[in-house]
């Protein structure tokens, strides 16, 4: 590992699948528990100041606080202008926009809630976190279907390597889709945030961390997902990630659906000789990132997380968790 390679030194999760990264219950169907059963706003963020903050931003703020607390005093060593944030989300503000539309078409735009109005833009979820933690280097929100959370890891890694910041917060946040929206029954809720910093910086401050992760993203045209050309695309992506196409780890977790893209990718990966666990995807970007968080916090189960959307967006994240005894991980 070179000094510029990023290591994950903090993980924060709030979700219906659990809030402890090493104990997430990710093997079953998408979790749909009522928010009250897994998210205590007052305990996570305090009794005041978040009434008008959308659910996804609340989750993201809480996960970020948990991740930074887990990482230790990393912010104090990084100037605000050297901090970056990358977020993936699909339905983070869907309900907010839906409610605004209802107000505008009903009682009129004059009655839009001024305190909620700033959240009309998808970028404001990450912006709210940036305000709270002084992230002034750069701030990016990605919205690719299903893959955006993992793409946030990729884009953030590139930004740090390009010299734009010395610290990366990256992850996913989602809130349920409106009830009348297709996909509502598979809605995701919650957030997962990773704190990443250059290996040399982590060593310098004595942080052990969880290990590293690397992501590649690629596209499989839905109408040609099973074609030889698509196969070459997958092989090229694996090669970019691992150096050679035959070096896939023994366990692969694929978060997807029975769409042509998901089916074709499962078939390709299934030929590798690795054990392939296919997990039903929800209607958002969160589950793949939760699998990344879980794989780092509880090493030995999954080393490659893959996701694919019906639209053709695909991403793979290779996990390289530390294997040395780690008091921090045990305490998670």
């Amino acid at each position: 590992m070179s000094a510029v390679d990023l290591v994950v030194t903090g993980i924060g999760v709030v979700s219906p699948w659990g809030c402890e990264p090493a104990k997430l219950r990710l093997d079953g169907e998408p979790a749909t528990g009522a928010e009250e059963s897994w998210f205590d706003l007052t305990a996570e963020l305090g009794a005041r100041g978040y009434k008008y903050v959308p659910s996804a931003a609340r989750y993201l703020l809480a996960a970020t606080r948990r991740a930074l607390a887990d990482a230790g005093p990393v912010l104090s060593g990084v100037p605000e202008a050297r901090r970056g944030l990358a977020l993936g989300t699909n339905s983070g503000i869907a309900s907010v926009i839906d409610a605004m539309d209802e107000t505008v078409t009903g009682s009129g735009a004059d009655l839009l809630s001024p305190a909620r109005a700033p959240y009309f833009s998808i970028n404001t979820l990450a912006g709210r976190v940036a305000m709270e933690h002084g992230v002034k280097g750069w701030n990016l929100t990605l919205t690719s279907p299903r893959t955006a959370g993992m793409e946030a890891l990729l884009a953030g890694d590139r930004a740090v390597r390009a010299g734009r910041s010395d610290l990366l917060l990256a992850g996913s946040a989602e809130a349920p889709l409106p009830v009348h929206t297709p996909g509502h029954d598979r809605s995701e809720a919650g957030a997962a945030v990773l704190v990443l910093e250059p290996h040399a910086a982590a060593v310098a401050r004595g942080a052990t961390g969880y290990g590293s992760c690397r992501t590649v993203a690629f596209f499989l045209p839905p109408s040609e997902a099973a074609s030889p050309a698509a196969g070459r695309t997958v092989t090229a992506a694996v090669t970019r990630l691992l150096g050679e196409p035959s070096a896939l780890p023994p366990v692969i977790r694929l978060v997807t659906d029975p769409s042509p893209v998901g089916t074709a990718l499962a078939a390709r990966l299934g030929q590798s000789g690795s054990r392939l666990d296919v997990v039903p995807a929800g209607a958002g970007t969160l589950q793949p990132v939760l699998h990344v968080a879980h794989g780092l916090a509880r090493p030995g189960t999954v080393h490659l997380v893959v996701t694919a959307s019906p639209d053709g967006a695909c991403a793979m994240t290779l996990l390289r968790p530390h294997h040395l005894p780690d008091q921090k991980r045990d305490s998670v």
Binding site: Y52, L111, L112, S113, P114, A115, P118
Partner: peptide
């Protein structure tokens, strides 16, 4: 100021 505007709308309604 933002919460002041929120209060204004609420009272108006």
């Amino acid at each position: 100021s933002l919460i002041g505007l929120e209060l204004q709308i609420t009272l108006e309604v």
